[in-house]
């Protein structure tokens, strides 16, 4: 390789590096302080509307990792057999099939994804619990014992969205 050309190309590479040294768009998301704004339709923690559920078990049938078990509860007029889904989030892969295939729109998804626990049993969510998650997501963290960690050490804020008016967050601001 021609050493002169190699030298010029190295200088070119270094100029690109220098350019980034001074125009600094940061792509890091400081996670516990900032949180990503999740789009609608994000597949996260499920919630269940028990009054809509008929116990047809299609969700349990279509679940690829077999995370859903149908459990007996008090029968309702709509759900004569009293079968409701219990979701084991140890297994759940968030494929969203149970929501997609539910003929009665009883199961839904929330944008909650931080489901860390100390005890694996806390990831097995019975139907009553799945129903309560919608109104009060905080019970998730109380139930799993992670609310200790979630006490705000930092001021939580939602991050500047990735797609801004001028383009994307990663782009340097042009003057």
């Amino acid at each position: 390789m021609n050493p002169v050309k190699a030298f010029i190309d190295s200088v070119k590479s270094m100029i690109v590096g220098f350019k980034y040294l001074f125009t600094v768009p940061r792509m890091t998301l400081k996670f516990p302080e900032q949180k990503m704004v999740l789009p609608p339709g994000y597949r996260g923690q499920h919630y269940l509307e028990m009054d809509k559920c008929t116990g047809c078990s299609i969700c349990a049938m279509s679940c690829p990792p077999r995370a859903i078990t149908m459990v007996k509860r008090d029968p309702t007029p709509r759900n004569k057999r009293g079968l409701f889904p219990l979701i084991n989030f140890n297994y759940c892969i968030y494929c969203g099939y149970c929501v997609l295939f539910c003929p009665f729109d009883a199961l839904h998804e929330l944008d909650i994804h931080d489901l860390a626990v100390y005890d694996r049993d806390k990831l097995i969510h019975p139907p009553e619990f799945l129903q309560k998650v919608k109104e009060n997501p905080e019970i998730l963290y109380e139930y799993s014992g992670m609310n200790v960690i979630r006490t705000p050490r930092w001021k939580e804020e939602y991050a500047e969205p990735v797609f801004t008016r001028r383009g994307v967050k990663h782009e340097p601001i042009r003057k």
Partner: peptide, 9 residues
């Protein structure tokens, strides 16, 4: 391209 593909090293 400039920093990687064109990089002589």
């Amino acid at each position: 391209y400039k920093i990687f593909m064109l990089n002589p090293v």
